[in-house]
């Protein structure tokens, strides 16, 4: 049996553990109302207080009277089984594909790629995410940066495609004053002449 790769990571809240899973395992994001098999049972009546799905993780919070060392193994087994049935998970709010794309892009911008942009004073914000196309605005020090295109495609797009494989295009909003790509010709006529 091939099991879906997953591992737990701690969060700031000791009762919440972030179970890292491959992007695209679950076709949804946000809080969960019901999950398949034992995980659903645990959420309804047992030690699990809340489940929230991120693009690359499942956040599971335990009820107040439970700890991870004791409840952990059962949760792990239940999660492994539940991940085998991705379409039986029920999100709190129905999600469109556009929502998933938006969440995936948000996840990229919150992650290491976004950290990299912020590390040198750049800024990336989501402009739109629909019909498998996404648009971001690169501002701050990115504005006049000749390497911004490189960051956009080799970092953001690569990361986004991992989380949302159906992606058609990621592009940056044109900034006023941002130089267009392509050769610049010397004017033939002197200005003001």
């Amino acid at each position: 049996m091939t099991t879906i790769p997953m591992h737990p990571e701690p969060t700031t809240d000791p009762r919440t553990v972030r179970w890292v899973i491959p992007a695209g395992t679950l076709p949804l994001v946000g809080p969960i109302t019901d999950a398949p098999a034992d995980l659903g049972t645990m959420l309804r009546s047992g030690p699990v207080a809340a489940i929230e799905v991120e693009t690359q993780a499942v956040l599971i919070r335990l009820a107040a009277d439970h700890t991870w060392p004791t409840a952990g193994p059962r949760v792990r087994d239940a999660l492994a089984t539940a991940l085998e049935h991705p379409h039986e998970w029920r999100p709190a709010t129905a999600l469109t594909e556009d929502d998933l794309l938006h969440a995936a892009l948000q996840d990229v911008l919150n992650g290491p790629a976004g950290d990299y942009i912020r590390s040198h004073g750049g800024e990336a914000t989501i402009v739109s995410a629909r019909d498998r196309r996404a648009e971001v605005r690169l501002s701050g020090t990115c504005t006049h940066c000749p390497a911004a295109d490189f960051t956009l495609h080799s970092r953001l797009e690569t990361e986004l495609r991992k989380r949302f494989p159906a992606l058609l295009e990621l592009h940056a909003t044109e900034q006023p004053g941002r130089r267009r790509p392509g050769p610049t010709w010397l004017p033939l006529r002197r200005r003001g002449a």
Binding site: T3, I4, P5, M6, H7, P8, P69
Partner: peptide
């Protein structure tokens, strides 16, 4: 300390290793 020790079941352990490497 790890939040939860890795699984003992060989299949689950492989999935843990895979996930750590991916991550």
């Amino acid at each position: 300390r790890p939040v939860l020790p890795p699984p003992t079941d060989p299949a689950q352990r492989r999935s843990w290793v895979e996930s750590v490497l991916l991550s």
